[in-house]
Simulated assay, not measured.
Amino acid sequence: MVLVPGGSLMTRTPEEGRALALTLARHTIHNIQPDLDILKGGRPNYASTPDSLIDAARVVAIEFQTIAAANGYWRG
């Protein structure tokens, strides 16, 4: 089970941090629901529900906040 790809939250740029946040969110969801058939089977429900999409975006935003803090908000 990979929870932090590459073993670090450190990134060179905010863009890389955002990409890592998306990856972490996907890994989190996959670790919660490892059965890909069940995971993919639920997509039609949450992919078309605005509240579910907002919740997914919130998860990514929280991951990004964590990464930004680990990187000192990309300041010198």
Rank of each mutant, 00 (worst) to 15 (best):
A47V: 00
P5A: 10
R18E: 12
G76M: 08
M1D: 04
G72R: 10
K40E: 15
I38L: 11
T23L: 12
Y73I: 00
D37M: 13
T28M: 12
V60L: 02
I54R: 15
D55C: 04
F64P: 02
T66W: 00
G17I: 02
R75L: 13
A47Y: 11
I62A: 06
V59H: 05
Q65E: 14
P50K: 12
G76R: 10
I29P: 03
Q65H: 08
T11M: 06
H27N: 15
I67F: 01
A19V: 11
Y46W: 15
A56H: 13
S8W: 07
V4H: 01
A47S: 14
A19D: 09
R26D: 15
A47M: 12
D37Q: 13
P34E: 06
A68T: 03
V60M: 10
L53S: 01
R75V: 03
N31K: 09
P44N: 01
L22P: 01
P44E: 10
R26E: 15
L20I: 04
L22S: 07
G42C: 04
E63C: 15
T11C: 13
T23H: 07
I62Q: 07
I54Q: 15
A69V: 03
T28Q: 03
D51M: 11
P14S: 07
M1W: 05
E16W: 00
A19P: 01
G42M: 13
E63S: 14
R43I: 10
V2G: 01
R75C: 02
I32D: 03
A21L: 00
A61L: 04
T49F: 08
T23V: 10
I38M: 07
P5C: 02
